[in-house]
Design a protein around this nucleic acid. Structure first.
Length: 467
RNA sequence: GCUCCCUUCGUCUAGUGGCCCAGGACGUCGCCCUCUCACGGCGAAAACACGAGUUCGAGUCUCGUAGGGAGCACCA
C-alpha cells in the first residue's frame, strides 16, 4: 500500500517550530517510503482561526521546501461531508442528541472531580432518542473493553473504554468538532500514517472508536514528543519565534533549521549534519525517542553558520538581498553581493548578522562606535594614518596585494606593528572595530570611499587633539 | 483529582545485559593561529533522578519512589 501522511495544523495560532518538526517528520516519512504528503488546514474553529495564520502555514512550508503532493485542503469546505457522516452515525445508533445544559455539565464535572474521578459525561441523554434540532450530537463510545493504540513511537498503549466518555461530535449549531473531522478526513484522504504531537495520544482511542463505528480501518499512529523551551517549559512566543517565518527574517537558512529540528528526538548514531537527501534516506520513525526535548538556540546558530560557510554563494544571494531590502539598505551603493558573501561567509552565524555587519559598505555612517574611536582614533596614530593615506592614494591597481603591502610598508617604515595601524584604519573606514580582513574590506569598499573616510578619520583625530 | 507518557553531561543525543570508571555534538573554559571579529587546530571540565530486585554481571530488564509533561472543552 502506498504510504500517505499528512500535516494538519490549525490556524488558530501562528505555525512555530514545534509544528514544523511534526510536519518535517511526516514529510520525511512520506518521502522515505516514496509515498505522498498531504497538507490539510484544520480551520473548523471559525472563531479563532485567522487568515494570517493560514498564510504563515503556506509560506512557512514553502520556505522550508516541505512540499505537499495534495492539498491544501480546508475543513471548512468539507462541512457537507461531515454532516453526512454525523447523520450516518446517528442513523446506525453510534451517536445521539444531547440537550444537557452547560450548567449541568459543569456540575457533574465538579462532582466527579470531588469524588476523585475523571470528569466525564454521564450519558444522561444516551438512550433518550431526542430529536431536538439544536441539540449537540455525541458519539456513543463503547462502555467496556479496551482500545490498544499500537504506536510506532510509544509502543502499545492501552486505554480502558470505561475511562472514556461520549464526546461531542457536533456543536448545537451543527458544526463538527475536531475528533470527528480528523477521523473523517484521515479516512476519506486515505491517510495511512498519522504522525503528530504526543499531546494527541489521549485522543487517539476515541478516534479509533469512531473509525470502528464507521467500519473503517484506523491509520497507523506515531506520537512524537513535544518540544520545550530552553528552560524546559512549554514553548512560548518569546522562545525564538512566534512564527516560523521569523527564523527566515532572522537570517536562518532552511537547511539549518530542518537539520536542527530533525535531531530533536531523532538521531542516527553520532551524525549531526544531515542534508535533506540524507535525512530522507536515514529517517525512520522507529528511531524517534519518547521524551520531550528542549530547544537550544546556540546549536541552531552553529548549524546555520555551518550551512552558510559551506553554501555556494549564489544560494545565499537571494535571501541576503531580501534581508538588505528588509533593512532598507540600497545595495546599489556598494559592492556586488556575491563579492560580499565571499568575504563574510566565514564569519557570521546568520545572514542577518552578515547584512548588519556589512552596512558600512553601502551606507556612510554618521558617527564612530564610541569605544572603538576612543581606543583607536588617537593622536599617536595621526601621522601614520596620513602617511598611509598618501600611500593608498598613489595605488594604481586597487587589489588585495597592493593594499596589503601599502599597509605593511607604512607600518614597517614607522616601526609599528601591523595591528597598530590596521585597527585605526578599520575604525576610520568602517566606523567600528569589526570587519573582514583589512585588505578585503578596503578592496570591496573601493579606493574613493576608503580615501574619503580615511580623510574624515584623520580630521576627526585632529579635531579631537585640538579641543 | 483521574488516565496516559517521560527521566544519560547545562542542552541535543549514542547506548537494545559484559565492547561503558559511559561515546559524539552544541555551549563553557584553556592553549595555538591572528590586523579586529570570526574560521580553523589542540586540550579540559561536565551525565546514567533515587531506592529495591533479577543476574556471575544493569545506563541497558522488573517493581517502587520522586520529579516533569500531556489529556480529561459545544479548542485543535
Amino acid at each position: 500500500m502506498k504510504i500517505r501522511t499528512r500535516f494538519a495544523p490549525s490556524p488558530t495560532g501562528l505555525l512555530h517550530i514545534g509544528g514544523i518538526r511534526t510536519a518535517l517528520f511526516s514529510w520525511l516519512y512520506a518521502k522515505h517510503h516514496k509515498g505522498q504528503f498531504i497538507l490539510r488546514i484544520e480551520d473548523t474553529d471559525r472563531e479563532r482561526s485567522t487568515d494570517e495564520a493560514v498564510q504563515v502555514i503556506l509560506d512557512g512550508m514553502a520556505w522550508l521546501g516541505l512540499d505537499h503532493d495534495e492539498g491544501p485542503f480546508y475543513q471548512t469546505q468539507r462541512f457537507g461531508r461531515y454532516k453526512e457522516v454525523i447523520n450516518e452515525l446517528l442513523e446506525n445508533g453510534h451517536a445521539y442528541r444531547c440537550i444537557c445544559s452547560k450548567v449541568r455539565l459543569d456540575k457533574i464535572r465538579d462532582e466527579a472531580m470531588s469524588r476523585g474521578d475523571k470528569p466525564r459525561y454521564d450519558g444522561l441523554c444516551r438512550s433518550l432518542n431526542l430529536t431536538d434540532e439544536n441539540a449537540v450530537i455525541r458519539f456513543k463510545n463503547p462502555t467496556d473493553g479496551d482500545v490498544v493504540v499500537s504506536d510506532q513511537v510509544q509502543g502499545d498503549v492501552i486505554f480502558e473504554n470505561s475511562e472514556l466518555d461520549d464526546l461531542i461530535i457536533a456543536r448545537s449549531d451543527g458544526s463538527p468538532t475536531y475528533n470527528l473531522t480528523v477521523v473523517v478526513d484521515d479516512m476519506d484522504m486515505g491517510i495511512t500514517e498519522v504522525i503528530r504531537g504526543d499531546d494527541h495520544l489521549n485522543n487517539t482511542p476515541r478516534q479509533i472508536n469512531i473509525f470502528n463505528a464507521l467500519g473503517a480501518k484506523a491509520p497507523n499512529y506515531a506520537h512524537i514528543p513535544m518540544i520545550l523551551s530552553p528552560e524546559g517549559k512549554k514553548l512560548s512566543k518569546r522562545d525564538g519565534a512566534a512564527s516560523v517565518l521569523q527564523y527566515r527574517d532572522d537570517g536562518i537558512l532552511p537547511e539549518a533549521l530542518l537539520n536542527y529540528l530533525v535531531r530533536l528526538g531523532w538521531s542516527k548514531g553520532d551524525q549531526e549534519i544531515f542534508s535533506i537527501d540524507e535525512m530522507v534516506s536515514a529517517f525512520d520513525i522507529k528511531d524517534v525517542n519518547k521524551s520531550a526535548s528542549s530547544i537550544n538556540p546556540d546549536k541552531l546558530l552553529w548549524l546555520n553558520q555551518h550551512y552558510i560557510k559551506n553554501a555556494e554563494n549564489k544560494l545565499l544571494l537571494k535571501p541576503l538581498t531580501d534581508l538588505f531590502l528588509l533593512m532598507n539598505i540600497n545595495i546599489e551603493n556598494g559592492p556586488e553581493i556575491e563579492d560580499l558573501i565571499d568575504i563574510q561567509k566565514q564569519r557570521t552565524e546568520t545572514l542577518k548578522e552578515m547584512a548588519e555587519q556589512s552596512t558600512f559598505f553601502y551606507n556612510d555612517f554618521e558617527e564612530y562606535d564610541a569605544n572603538a574611536a576612543k581606543k583607536h582614533l588617537r593622536p599617536v596614530i595621526l601621522e601614520p594614518l596620513k602617511q598611509l593615506y598618501d600611500s593608498l592614494k598613489s595605488l594604481e591597481t586597487w587589489d588585495n596585494d597592493n593594499i596589503k603591502s601599502a599597509i605593511e610598508k607604512t607600518a614597517n617604515d614607522l616601526e609599528i606593528k601591523m595591528g597598530k595601524l590596521a585597527q585605526p584604519l578599520r575604525v576610520a573606514v568602517t566606523g567600528a572595530g569589526v570587519s573582514p580582513s583589512i585588505d578585503d574590506t578596503l578592496r570591496l569598499l573601493g579606493q574613493d570611499k576608503t580615501l574619503k573616510r580615511l580623510r574624515k578619520g584623520i580630521e576627526f583625530i585632529e579635531n579631537r587633539s585640538s579641543s
